[in-house]
Nucleic acid binder design. Structure first.
Length: 274
DNA sequence: CAGCTCCCCTGATTGC
DNA sequence: TGCAATCAGGGGAGCT
């Protein structure tokens, strides 16, 4: 990490004090992810936390004169005015820039000591990841018992499950034949155990995420993968953005409708999602 | 505390 | 063609 070029001082929130100076000259040691946050570990126990919001993206470009295999060369575009943060990296093979672009500026970046990451406000109460075996029906039953919340808002709540967004919640509920307006407590038995439908929901959530990862992401029209090709999961939507169209559940014959919950669009079929 | 609504910002799309 | 209204993948502040 040679230097950091800040083209504006704020994204969604002001960037941390001395942001550029604190990361400049430090070697990058690891890249990882927690929920919807990207984590970049620098030397000396410093981690950059980055969130793309709804319109943020990173792209990698070779600096002038460098011709690096595997580095995607982008066309210059009108969107360049939304290039807000540019990381200049030196590598033995040549220099690259990593450019953060975000038209809506709903994304943000922050810095924290890696050793203190668990105390970062957004991480403190984060639920389990929807991949792997942490997301079980038993876990959901403990979170849902006695609660009046609609399923849709519970699944969007990052404290319940980390990293599910609007599209995947709609898709998981459709796959489970569960209504987004249903109260979460109705999926738990009197003794606090998951009903069979909750077991189905837990596996639907894991599957929809796995399918989306395999398809390379799902953003509505402009999502690109790291190698510059399009993410294709949007072609696999079964409920999301299908208002007025026929439900794809075998033998259902219903119509997908759009409702608004907590200010966000929900797409579902009231004929087969109960 | 739980569960809403509103709002941050810009661009794409739709309707007149 | 132009212009205004509507909507968007997230999440935090602040209300009831």
């Amino acid at each position: 990490m040679q230097r950091l070029e800040l083209r504006r001082a704020d994204l969604r929130f002001p960037l941390p004090r001395d942001f550029a100076a604190r990361v400049a000259g430090r070697r990058i040691q690891a890249l990882s992810r927690r929920a919807k946050y990207l984590l970049v570990d620098f030397e000396e126990d410093l981690t950059l936390i980055a969130h793309l919001g709804m319109s943020g993206s990173f792209r990698i470009e070779a600096d002038e004169g460098a011709n690096l295999p595997g580095v995607f060369h982008h066309e210059r575009s009108k969107d360049e005015k939304h290039d807000h943060v540019i990381f200049h990296l030196e590598r033995p093979e040549g220099a690259v820039r990593i450019v953060y672009n975000d038209p809506r500026r709903f994304g943000f970046m922050d810095l924290m000591a890696r050793s203190e990451l668990d105390t970062y406000p957004a991480f403190r109460e984060l639920g389990p990841e929807p991949v792997g075996n942490m997301l079980s029906a038993d876990y959901l039953a403990t979170r849902f018992a006695g609660r009046a919340q609609p399923l849709k808002s519970a699944l969007l709540d990052q404290k319940v499950i980390a990293g599910l967004g609007n599209i995947y919640v709609c898709e998981a509920l459709w796959r489970s034949h569960l209504s987004p307006t249903r109260k979460v407590a109705t999926l738990v038995t009197k003794t606090g155990k998951p009903k069979p439908q909750l077991t189905l929901l837990a596996s639907s959530i894991r599957e929809v995420i796995a399918d989306a990862i395999e398809a390379g992401g799902s953003s509505l029209r402009d999502h690109i993968q790291a190698d510059g090709t399009l993410g294709y999961f949007q072609h696999f939507f079964r409920a999301y953005d299908r208002e007025g169209r026929e439900c794809l559940t075998d033998g259902c014959g219903g119509t997908v409708e759009r409702i608004v919950q907590s200010g966000r669009s929900t797409f579902y079929c009231r004929a087969c999602q109960k």
